[in-house]
Simulated assay, not measured.
Amino acid sequence: MDFDQPDENRSFSPNRYYDRHFGKDAVKIMPGEYYVTTEDTMIVTVLGSCVSVCLRDPVRKIGGMNHFLLPNDGASTISSVSESARYGVFAMELLINQMLKLGADKRCMEAKVFGGGNVLKGFTALNVGERNAEFVLDYLHTEHIPVLASDLLERYPRKVYFFPWTGEVKVKKIKSLHNNTIIDRESEYRMRVRQAPTAGDVDLFL
């Protein structure tokens, strides 16, 4: 499996655990991953400059979350900007496509979006988080998917808990880092996606 590209199979091999605090089965997704479910399962991720879209069809109780980053920072040419946007579109379409496969109706989908903090050391001037946040909002607007809530930008990492059955999202801002795990993980992911081939097209099951 190619870790550097979003992959539909990643939806089926998640990091599962039981969350004692919420009393629920949970799935934790990492940078470059996504997860979609029809069950009452909590989806969790930790975001720095990356963004996550919590997407839901409230009628059918189908929901999912992704975690991704645009590969090019401060792109100065039209081609590099285009390639970066294509990666973001690919990541979003994988999430939407998997929801459609499970029976969701795109016309009913609603979103909540999070992340885009300026936490990557040495890249503050390039507005990494801002570019990711702007892309997500523009994409959802173009696809006519309403954004019901958002918590974007600032300078803190976030831990996001998404409950697909109810649509509830809880966000914990991490204002004191005890180690560099979040930053190191996103920095490594950022380098991988910059070096990976441009993602191809994904056909949606409408």
Rank of each mutant, 00 (worst) to 15 (best):
V202F: 00
S84A: 04
M65I: 07
I145T: 11
D25A: 06
L204W: 03
P197Y: 05
E154P: 04
M92V: 02
D184Q: 04
E154K: 13
G167D: 00
P71I: 10
R20C: 01
K170G: 08
L95M: 05
V27K: 02
G116V: 04
K121C: 14
A85N: 14
R194C: 08
P157F: 02
D201E: 14
D105G: 04
I78V: 13
I182Y: 03
D40Y: 10
P197I: 07
G32W: 10
C50D: 12
R10L: 03
S150L: 08
Q5E: 07
E154R: 14
P146L: 01
V51N: 09
V119F: 04
V136G: 07
E186L: 09
I29Q: 04
H67A: 06
K61F: 01
L69M: 11
S52Y: 09
W165A: 11
V89Y: 07
V171M: 02
S187Q: 07
P197D: 03
G88W: 10
F90M: 12
V193T: 15
C54H: 06
D138S: 10
D105R: 09
L126N: 05
S49F: 13
A85S: 14
L204I: 03
S76H: 08
K28H: 11
L148S: 02
E8I: 15
D40S: 02
K106W: 00
R192H: 07
I43S: 01
G64L: 10
D151P: 01
S187K: 05
E33C: 12
I29C: 05
L95K: 01
M99H: 00
V202T: 11
A149P: 04
H144M: 06
R158T: 14
S13R: 14
D19H: 04
Y189H: 13
S176Q: 11
K24N: 03
R192M: 12
K112E: 10
F90C: 15
A26K: 08
L140K: 08
D40F: 13
I183H: 07
